[in-house]
Design a protein around this nucleic acid. Sequence first.
DNA 1: GGCAATCTCCTAATGCTATTAGGTAAGCTG
DNA 2: CAGCTTACCTAATAGCATTAGGAGATTGCC
Lengths: 201, 201
Amino acid sequence: MVSRPPKGSTKKRIIESAKKLFAEQGYQKTTVMDISRQAGLSEAALYDYFQGKEDLLLTIPDLWVAELIGGLEEQLFGINGAFNKLRKYLWWYLKRVEASPLDAKIVYLFLKTNANFMKTDVYANVRAFYGYLIDIFEEGKRSGEMKSELNPYIARDIFVGTMDHIVTRWLLKDRSYPLFENLEELFDLMTDAFRPLSAHS
Amino acid sequence: MVSRPPKGSTKKRIIESAKKLFAEQGYQKTTVMDISRQAGLSEAALYDYFQGKEDLLLTIPDLWVAELIGGLEEQLFGINGAFNKLRKYLWWYLKRVEASPLDAKIVYLFLKTNANFMKTDVYANVRAFYGYLIDIFEEGKRSGEMKSELNPYIARDIFVGTMDHIVTRWLLKDRSYPLFENLEELFDLMTDAFRPLSAHS
DNA sequence: GGCAATCTCCTAATGCTATTAGGTAAGCTG
DNA sequence: CAGCTTACCTAATAGCATTAGGAGATTGCC
C-alpha cells in the first residue's frame, strides 16, 4: 500500500460522501457503489464501518442534531422574556439549517419518513428540541407575557408546523431564495395570538 | 382460463393492493411481487398497466387529490365570511384525510419527498388547493374581517404548515388518536392573529 | 527483532428485486 | 373461421445490497 489515509478519517469520508450523494440524488437512487467510489473505497470496505445503507442514512445527522440540541441552552442563556427566547429559538434553528443544508435535507426528506426513524437517537433529540418550546410557553404564561389560557401544546404545534414548513419548502426549492426572507413578519404574525388580549403588537 | 375478473377491474385491484402495501410497509420495503400477488397476478402482468413501481406510486393518489380540489368549491359555496370559509376549509380537508388515510399517508410520507413529485398532476392539484387560501385571505382583508396589513402569503404559510404538521403526526402515530382533537382551540389560536387589532376573540 | 493479533481494505460470490422478452390462450371482428 | 387484440403467463436479464473469505499492513507484546 502506497499511502494510507489518516487514522479515523475513513468513516468521516464515507459520511461526507453519502451525505452529498443522498442530498443530491435522493436515498433510493444513490447506490452503495456510488458512495464507496466517492469515498475512494471498495463497496465491501464500507461494511466495516456501517451495517448497511440504511444504517448510514440513520447515522449521518447524528452530529448535526446533537450539536443543535447541545447548543440550544447556550443560545438561550441570558435571554430575558419568553418572546425573546422564542425569537432566538427560531433564528438559531434556521441558522443551523442554513449552515448545514445537506444534513437538514436528509432529516427532512429522507429520515422523517423512514419507518425506523422513531427508534433513532436523532428522533429523541428532535423531540427534546421541540420540547423546549413547552418550557418557553410555560414561562411566558407565568410572567404574563403570554395569555393565561394559552395551551402550550397547541402553540407548539403551530410554531413547529410553521417552522418545518418554511424549512421544507426552502429545501425542496433547492435553496433558491434567502431562508430568512420575511421572517420578522412571519414571527410576529405567528406569535401575536399568544399574547394577552390587551397587548397585541 | 376458468374465470376472468370483470373488465377494467384489474387496474383498480393493482392500485388498491399497492396502496395498502405501501401504506403498511413503506414504498421501499414493498416489492412488485408483493403487489402483484396481492392483486392475484404475475409480476409481468402489472407492467401492462403501469410503467413500473414508481409510476404506480405517483398514480395512486390521483383520484383522491382530484376529488379534494374538485369538492372544495362545492364545500365553500354559500358560506359567508372569510373565517367561516377558513374553518370549513380545514375541517373538510381533515375529513378527507380521515376518510382516506392510505392516500394521505402516501402523499405525505412517500410522494412529497420523491424527486419526480413536482412533475405530477398531484403536485399541481395540491398547489391549487393551497392557492385557494390566498383568495380567502384577500376576501377577509377586503371585508374588514382580517387586518389590512395581513400578508396573505405569510398567513398561508402558517395555516398550511400547521395543518400539514397535524396530519403528518397523526399519520406517523398510526392514527391512534382522534384527528379532530382540540381542533377548535387550534383553529382559534392560529387564526386569531389574522383579525384586526381591536377584534380579537 | 519476531510474531501473533488486529485493522483496513480488497476481489469475488450470493441472493433478492425491478424490469423485459417472448409466448399462449381466450375472446372479438370481419 | 382467420386474424387481431387483450390479458395474462414463464423465464430470462441486469442491477444492487450484502456477505465470504482473504491479503497486506500495523500494532502490541515478548
